[in-house]
């Protein structure tokens, strides 16, 4: 177990290093000079040179990368090219809406996806199963941003003009510690937006996986020894059926960041995702590097957690 963990952590650090190198190089192989865009259109060559020097852009690529790595180990991700804000401070400032969105959204899609998936599998071919299948295809077909726009349309235009009440405000973010009720009101539409596609995918996955497991011999054994249906499904079936769901969850951590950028942009939550989008458009390399590394860190962490979770879910899996 310990050896397994050490190996995974070493590999994880290697992946993070690769990601940092890749992102770093991406900004150099392409045309576009951050110093020029910061200086503005009418800047003199001297001004541009000065900015380049101040940002350390005049140094050789390898030296720049080495400086970046050294600072990284001290917990310093550099400063934004645009407003000189430390990247760590910028991320810390904006992590609130993003964390609320991701944690709430993920909980919601797991509960809906796994819950409906179980119902669908245990009632295979029933009306419920068919209706669910319809919703699943519709859900999978919906681009995240369209879900968000449609929710805004319904709740912030149709219902609010007809009834004159706005149930859920269509934007901004209230910190949880300030006003929990208002926080909830602001987060409900973003949560639904983030989780619609995922809930559909997880429903399909859980249903398929559970149906397959329920056909296994050991399930018949469990039934033969007199276990009730609920016990068979929950204790014997679900444990094995959840393995692919957990795998998918590990993969989706990376996906989630894309969904977060989109959802935050639709609702103007002002989180890390929106900062990333802004930084990407501005070629603000330190901020992009910071956000990508943060995301990659969670992806790596998730893959390790998933591997450990396997050994709990499936007694046949031994970590080695």
């Amino acid at each position: 177990m310990i050896r397994f963990l050490i190996r995974r952590v070493v590999f994880g650090v290697f992946v993070l290093w690769l990601v940092s190198l890749g992102t770093f190089l991406l900004f150099f192989v392409v045309p576009g000079d951050p110093a020029r865009s910061i200086a503005g259109r009418q800047a003199t060559p001297e001004t541009i040179a000065l900015i380049r020097e101040r940002l350390g852009l005049d140094e050789p690529l390898a030296v720049q990368y080495w400086t970046f790595l050294k600072n990284l180990f001290r917990g310093d991700l550099g400063y934004s090219y645009y407003n000189n804000q430390p990247v760590t401070a910028l991320i810390a400032e904006r992590i609130g809406p993003t964390a609320s969105l991701v944690i709430g959204g993920a909980l919601l899609w797991l509960v809906i996806g796994v819950g409906v998936g179980i119902l669908s599998a245990t009632h295979a071919r029933s009306l419920l199963d068919r209706v669910t299948a319809g919703f699943v295809v519709a859900g999978i077909s919906m681009p995240t941003f369209v879900v968000g726009l449609m929710l805004l349309f319904v709740f912030n235009y149709l219902l609010s003009t007809v009834l004159g009440i706005t149930f859920f405000p269509g934007g901004q973010y209230t910190p949880l510690e300030e006003d929990p009720a208002d926080w909830l009101r602001h987060m409900i539409l973003p949560w639904i937006t983030l989780c619609t596609v995922q809930a559909a995918i997880y429903t399909r996955l859980t249903r398929g996986s559970l149906l397959e497991v329920l056909g296994e011999d050991y399930i018949r054994t469990a039934r033969a020894k007199g276990d009730g249906n609920r016990r068979v499904v929950v204790v014997h079936g679900l444990r094995a059926a959840l393995t692919p769901v957990v795998t998918q969850l590990g993969v989706d951590v990376g996906y989630m960041l894309g969904g977060v950028v989109v959802t935050e942009s639709v609702f103007g939550l002002g989180g890390v995702g929106q900062a990333a989008l802004q930084a990407i458009v501005n070629l603000d390399r330190p901020v992009v590097m910071g956000v990508v590394l943060l995301a990659a860190f969670f992806v790596v962490l998730a893959s390790i957690v998933v591997d450990i979770a396997y050994s709990f879910l499936d007694p046949r899996v031994r970590l080695s």
Binding site: G258, V262, L277, L283
Partner: peptide
Amino acid sequence: DVVLSFPYLIFAMALVSVI
């Protein structure tokens, strides 16, 4: 595995915005 699990939308955005 890497391509499947990485935040591809972010990378795609970065690629498109620089190129």
